[in-house]
Design a protein around this nucleic acid. Structure first.
Lengths: 107, 107
DNA sequence: ATTTATTATCGTAATATTGCAATATATAAA
DNA sequence: TTTATATATTGCAATATTACGATAATAAAT
């Protein structure tokens, strides 16, 4: 069937899974690390840095944008991609909450 | 082509992506939450709780085991699945390290 | 030994993801 | 206005993931 049965899980579980899914790719990890280390964040630089084709990078950026982890500011014919600090921290808190809430009273 | 180009990324990036991938499914999130809240963690109970077929749960448990997030102790004809506390904390630290190391000197 | 209960594995269908070439769009420069 | 540059979108092929029925494997109970 190939399709995740999201309807049998609650919103929090699906939200966590969606966030983890966006982060579940080394190219997207590398993009986030690269963006965060640069002052000027231009998509074409990312292409040179990561070593994947431009459409592939563009698609990965779209997925990172889908959960608002990055935002892109249009600057002439370039787009300056940046970490969305607010969302970044929100997601870190959400993940920590998940890890902290899990108790270990088993076995 | 459908295959992730792991060879162009470093070990840390691939490791992070692998961990995120294992967590990137609401069934596996639900399984972790359920296991952590129970004293006796038996696969068949998980099947009843989650609402997916037994082979599907068994496969998800295998994936969680693949990064040692849970461990299974054989107890007669049952298997008691438990959170691997050591690895759990190690992964939480690894993810926090990723989130903390990302700087925000862009834009 | 046979039956029952629990979990794992295999095979398969449906869907999702990854990556890229080709192309489209949009803006700046010439 | 043509050309060059930067990014997005489309379409497609290869591979991965999700889920489940059928079946195997294992161990306890009868």
């Amino acid at each position: 069937m190939g399709i995740t049965k999201t309807q049998i899980f609650n919103n929090r579980q699906n939200e966590l899974a969606t966030i983890f899914k966006v982060l579940a790719n080394p190219a997207r990890i590398a993009i986030l690390q690269y963006i965060s280390g640069q002052k000027a964040c231009i998509c074409n630089d990312i292409v040179d840095e990561i070593g994947l084709a431009q459409p592939t990078i563009s698609q990965h950026l779209k997925e990172l944008k889908s959960i608002h982890l990055i935002k892109g500011a249009i600057d002439g014919k370039k787009v300056c991609y940046c970490i969305n600090l607010e969302k970044w921290k929100e997601i870190q808190d959400l993940l920590n909450s998940f890890f902290d809430k899990t108790k270990f009273n088993c076995c």
